[in-house]
Design a protein around this nucleic acid. Sequence first.
RNA 1: GGCCCCAUCGUCUAGUGGUUAGGAUCCCAGGUUUUCAUCCUGGUUACAGGGGUUCGAAUCCCCUUGGGGUCGCCA
Length: 448
Amino acid sequence: MVITRFAPSPTGYLHIGGLRTALFNYLWAKRNGGKFLLRIEDTDRSRHNEEAVKAILEAFEWVGLESDDEVVYQSQRHEIYRKYIDQLLEEGKAYRCYMTKEELDKLREEQIARKERPRYDGRYRDFQGTPPEGIEPVIRIKAPLDGTIVVDDKIKGKIEFRVQDTLDDFIIARADGSPTYNFVVAIDDALMGVTDVIRGDDHLSNTPKQIVIYQALGFDIPNFYHVPMIHNEKGKKLSKRDGATDVMEYKREGYLPEALLNFLVRLGWSYGDKELFSLDEMIKLFDPKEINKSASIYNIEKLNWINREYINQKSSEELAQLLNISPTPVIELVKNRCSTLVQLEQEVKKIVERPTQYDSKSLKKHFKELNRELLKEFLEKIQNSNISCEDALSSILESRGVGMAKLAQPIRIALVGVAQSPSVVDIMKILGKDEVVFRIEKLLAEVQ
RNA sequence: GGCCCCAUCGUCUAGUGGUUAGGAUCCCAGGUUUUCAUCCUGGUUACAGGGGUUCGAAUCCCCUUGGGGUCGCCA
């Protein structure tokens, strides 16, 4: 059974980098008929932010990625961690360190001054004496003193970390007794039965520490896949300052969740020349071992294209529902000119609602004296007979011997206020003669 | 700075010793369209640099350069 997880820390909203990681985990679990789990990393009490948790869950709901079990909150598992800390203490694999923060800071400064790597010096590792008064100790793990730790990463290959320049006896529990990140990650992954850890490669350098924990506790080491970051246009790690990184912002801007997922899955992964993937196809085809080694730069153009594709795959009924409006044939008329639902909404309004103003450039070009004359003739014709708007249009063009644009363009301006729109014939059919008459009279009356 | 990772069109990518280096997006041009959009056709643009290995390197090795990540009693 393949069990994967996504483990965000609730410091804010879910951003697209996180969503991609979650998606990778989700797909891999589903492909193997396994489980995808969600865990909130809030060991640090100051990090437990109800709002943020809600925001993250809301985003997952929107895109439709569900955890297969109840969401795990680390803040509720302190007893479990306590138990393992005690165990390591008893077995002599961890120890109390009475060094104060100030002493530690000083040590670090000195080391940096000497151009050495800041590193705990192990002064309490084998301490037997009486502990200093009034100091709440932290708990440190006994890390190996030399040799190497190998991370067998399924994307990047085997990576060797020399203990001497990557590890020290790091803290697994703070002075207040609360456990630290690398410690609980290893425990929770093991206890939750996680077999495959797919996460950002900013965690790569944490992995040796976690391996130390796995080994100390006798847990099996899972498969690691460290996926490259998504960078912003400047080539830097995506941060909250980089515009629309909040997943829910994409909802507000009119992107479809399936389009966003499709966009994200192609960042760092591909399947031949295939660009469009339904969720089922992704599940069938995705393999984290095929993820690229290099970072990719986030670029919205492709997303816009994908979103347009998905919008056009949808029926008018579905789109009406998404826009929360009643179905109208107008949607069919305009959907192929929209990259987002927001645009679609605007395009629908442009036709359904009467123009409140007329574009001056369009007027200047297509509402000259002859156009006005033709428009008046058209208006009279449809008012005084049963002729359809379409027939009236072509009959006038024929009798006057003028090109289509001479009359169609002023009609268009009357109908929607600008010189660009879908076919005027189609619009007139949908609007009906009365409304066409009204809008033409309005233009004639308001613009001299 | 130490350690680690990475390097093909502007961007996302295909490519695993022999290809006119392919696709997508973007951009441009032409066609279609009463207009705009769609659609169709075509086009511009890439193996970071230098050494090897080899009959032959985008593909393997090394160096340089460039970029990124990480170095907490944060996660």
